[in-house]
Computed example of a mutant assay.
Amino acid sequence: MLFQPPVFETIFRTPVEHRLVIRGSRSRGAPLDGVRWYHDEFDAAGALVARYETFDETDESGEERCGWRRYDAGGRLLARHEVAMRWSALVALKQSRRGAEIALQRLSGHGSPVPPARRVLAA
């Protein structure tokens, strides 16, 4: 099965009147395996409202994780969410890509403060 990345608009809960534009992606090989995507969100008037960094990786300590970070137009971290498994494992656990995307959504609104860093295992 080919790798199918998430539908980022679903994860970020992008309003339908906004546009999400990919700025790029980066991948790296073993032993630190992973991929990162970078997106910009524009409102209906074309103003930049947010930037996102999404990741699916095995980090320096060998921990598997996937998640995202949301920044305002000025580069300040607004929100983040992470699960302690790779994207493919999350899809398998949730039995669908859509279920995995929902598991990666943040539960509160876009304007909430950044919670303390913690790992969350999606059940």
Rank of each mutant, 00 (worst) to 15 (best):
L78A: 11
D56P: 10
H81T: 01
A73D: 01
T14S: 02
R97D: 11
V91G: 08
G62H: 11
Q4T: 13
L121W: 12
G99I: 01
P6G: 04
S112G: 06
S25P: 00
P6Q: 06
E64F: 12
R98F: 10
V83Q: 05
G99H: 06
E9A: 14
E57M: 13
A50G: 10
G111R: 15
G67T: 02
R119L: 08
F3D: 03
Y38P: 08
A79M: 10
L48P: 12
D43C: 06
E63Q: 09
E53D: 05
R13V: 05
G24H: 00
R106L: 10
L48K: 06
Q105L: 01
S88A: 09
Y38F: 10
G34V: 08
E17S: 07
V114T: 14
E60C: 09
E101P: 15
E82N: 08
H81C: 14
L2M: 12
Q105W: 01
D43I: 12
P116S: 05
G99W: 05
V49E: 00
Y38R: 05
G111F: 04
R86W: 11
I11Q: 00
F12P: 11
W37G: 04
G109S: 14
M85I: 14
T14Q: 01
T58H: 01
R36I: 15
A103F: 01
H81R: 09
V21M: 09
E64H: 10
R36E: 15
D59C: 00
G111Q: 12
P15I: 08
I102E: 14
P31K: 01
F12I: 07
R98Y: 14
F42A: 00
A89Y: 08
S96F: 12
